[in-house]
Design a protein around this nucleic acid. Structure first.
Length: 571
RNA sequence: GCGCCUGUAGCUCAGCUGGAUAGAGCAGCGGACUUCUAAUCCGCAAGCCGGGUGUUCGAAUCACCCCAGGCGCACCA
């Protein structure tokens, strides 16, 4: 029911208070017969971009006007006249435009936000939205047939940051890397290594048609042949060693790069384990008992079309082998059995056609519709010297995540990956990124943090400290720029909740850039007007401003931490 | 042919799930360092928000139809 229910963009505490004030007011107006008592359509409370429109604005009168045949502005006036503000929340309220009400909140209420931030410190924004729900986030999940590339980097940054934010919002989060090691591709890796090994003695030894051509294959062959004397073994055993060792070494490398990228997985699940342990078989039998399987043209099919897929899918091929889909269904059923209330998968966008069939299969097994969320990550296009470079693992021409980190460092790489929405393609101009050293957007945010730390060093050297308790001096903060920053900071907790709902971590990156911009602007006021400096001759004012600066520093550090990026004290 | 994603300033992208005058960065031009760090700031210039129709008091945002680009449409993984 939407009755009495405002629609929020974010769940600001301030908005909640304002909404409850509005409810009381309307109720009173109904009771006194000032307005016709009917159910309400959904209305909004929002923070207008235009500062002239107050701290908050509601379209309530506009929505009330429909069906009442009274001008919205008149309704707005009635509401304002009879406003019930027991907590003294408001400084003023005005009718505006076609029938909005603009609200200005009492400055004291804003100062309270500031004291809350500086007292909660690194916990500001932490909340219990997730109610300890167990969430499994599966991401990267690259085949261990080659080094991680830029696309994996994007997935890694996105997945890890999402986990950090979910966990901050009270979810019980686990990170998982799924290893597709049961299929053709891993065998092909082994065959490629095997062939390179053979070529060390006989350069004409054939290379598998669809094999992996990258230089890393040669290195693997060399490494493995140094560890094991392959010549002494029969060929099929040699091949087997190439497969096993090749996979193990690749996984080791992947693990190493990810850890360098500050991404640590809780679980590494092997597809081969699911198959070998018989779990896939068991699950298929279970599905069959429910009557969702049938035979056609010598293959076994699953009836996903009954559950939203556009056609049925093959589970067991004519040749008797299971499809990838079979183990994938099983894998997800196991996730559920492992006790996870929710699963989030980050997949490359080229797998989008796969989503409906996966969801359909799970629905058929009785899992709730929203148990699985799939985040599709669009491609990373690589540009060099003004040309797009097509990346292909088989052809062996790609820039690996490791190489990228060598060029730009972890902070910059993570920030760039987290700047854009996951469903738009990312143009990655490698030349530009190399140049980015002084021009990189991550420095903008980090610099704000370092600057504030520097101000605190300066303040300390002059014996100026924060007020304790903070609120005693905060009413000295009266500049527009100061109030603006406080309002921005009040949005931080609700932003994090929004991100958990929308699964769009890039919004935190935007937010931090905007907050940093406000601070840099504010800081520069002081270069023109000495009284506007944070550390000024007026000691009390300085102490109040230190409080503000500290709050900005805290939120910036919290935000960067959630992005997996360092917050330097000096730059 | 069918489906998913994208289309916003010269370029790369935001735009808080329907609000008031569409915003940043880069590139361009012009300014600000005896100062709490100039990795910063200020100003100028730059837009039929791909096009059309519709819903609404109100649309970049929602619906439908086109156009363009990307990606899918396997008894591959």
């Amino acid at each position: 029911m939407f009755y009495w229910q405002a629609k929020y963009k974010g769940i600001h505490k301030m908005k909640l208070k304002l909404d409850s004030l509005l409810k009381t007011t309307i109720e009173e107006c109904f009771k006194r017969g000032l307005l016709k008592n009917t159910s309400l359509p959904a209305y909004t409370i929002e923070a207008p971009n235009n500062t002239a429109h107050g701290h908050f604005a509601t379209n309530l009168p506009l929505t009330l006007a429909t069906g009442r045949k009274r001008p919205p502005r008149e309704i707005a006036s009635i509401l304002i006249e009879h406003i019930i503000d027991n907590d003294n929340l408001l400084e003023k309220a005005e009718v505006a435009g076609p029938g909005f009400i603009n609200f200005w909140v009492n400055p004291d209420k804003w100062y309270q936000v500031l004291s809350e931030i500086v007292s909660l410190r690194e916990h500001y924004g932490r909340n219990k939205m997730g109610k300890d729900e167990k969430v499994l986030v599966e991401f990267v999940s690259a085949n261990p047939t080659g080094p991680l590339h830029l696309g994996h980097g994007r997935g890694a940054a996105l997945g890890d940051t999402l986990c950090r934010i979910l966990s901050f919002c009270g979810y019980d989060v686990a990170r998982e890397f799924y290893i597709n090691d049961a299929g053709q591709q891993i065998r092909l890796l082994g065959e490629s290594i095997f062939s390179r090994f053979k070529q060390m003695q006989d350069p004409d030894y054939p290379f598998p048609e669809k094999g992996y051509h990258g230089d890393y294959i040669q290195e693997l062959a060399k490494k493995i042949s140094q560890e094991v004397s392959l010549n002494a073994l029969p060929e099929d055993e040699t091949l087997n060693i190439c497969i096993q060792k090749g996979k193990a070494i690749m996984l080791d490398e992947i693990r190493h790069v990810l850890s360098r990228f500050r991404v640590k997985f809780d679980y590494w699940t092997n597809e081969s384990d699911l198959v070998d342990s018989g779990l896939v078989k068991d699950n298929l039998e279970m599905i069959e008992k429910k009557g969702h399987l049938y035979e056609k043209d010598g293959a076994t099919w699953i009836k996903t079309s009954d559950f939203g897929d556009d056609k049925d899918r093959v589970i067991r091929k004519k040749d008797g082998f299971l499809t990838y889909f079979a183990s994938d269904i099983s894998y997800h059923l196991e996730k559920k059995k492992r006790g996870f209330d929710k699963a989030i998968n980050l997949w490359g966008a080229d797998h989008h056609g796969y989503v409906p069939r996966m969801k359909a299969a799970l629905k058929a097994q009785g899992l709730p519709e929203n148990w699985l969320s799939v985040l599709l990550i669009q491609l990373v296009k690589l540009w060099k010297d003004g040309n797009e470079i097509k990346m292909s693992k088989r052809a062996g021409n790609f820039v690996s995540l490791d190489e990228l980190l060598n060029e730009v460092g972890v902070d910059a790489a993570r920030f760039i990956f987290l700047i854009k929405n996951h469903d738009s393609t990312l143009d990655f101009d490698i030349d530009l990124v190399k140049k980015l050293d002084s021009n990189n957007p991550v420095y903008y945010v980090q610099y704000a943090h370092a600057r504030i730390c520097s101000i605190f060093r300066k303040a300390a050297s002059e014996g100026i400290s924060m007020p304790d308790p903070p609120e005693i001096l905060l009413n000295r903060l009266v500049l527009n720029e100061e109030m603006q920053m406080i309002r921005q900071m009040e949005e931080f907790p609700s932003l994090l909740k929004d991100i958990c709902r929308s699964l769009e971590p890039h919004r935190l990156t935007s937010y931090l850039s905007l907050l940093s911009a406000s601070f840099h602007k504010y800081f520069n006021l002081g270069t023109k007007i000495p009284e506007h400096r944070i550390v000024t001759d007026d000691k009390e004012l300085s102490r109040a401003r230190l409080c503000l600066a500290d709050a900005v520093r805290i939120i910036t550090a919290n935000g960067l931490n959630l992005l997996g990026i360092t917050a330097p004290e000096e730059m």
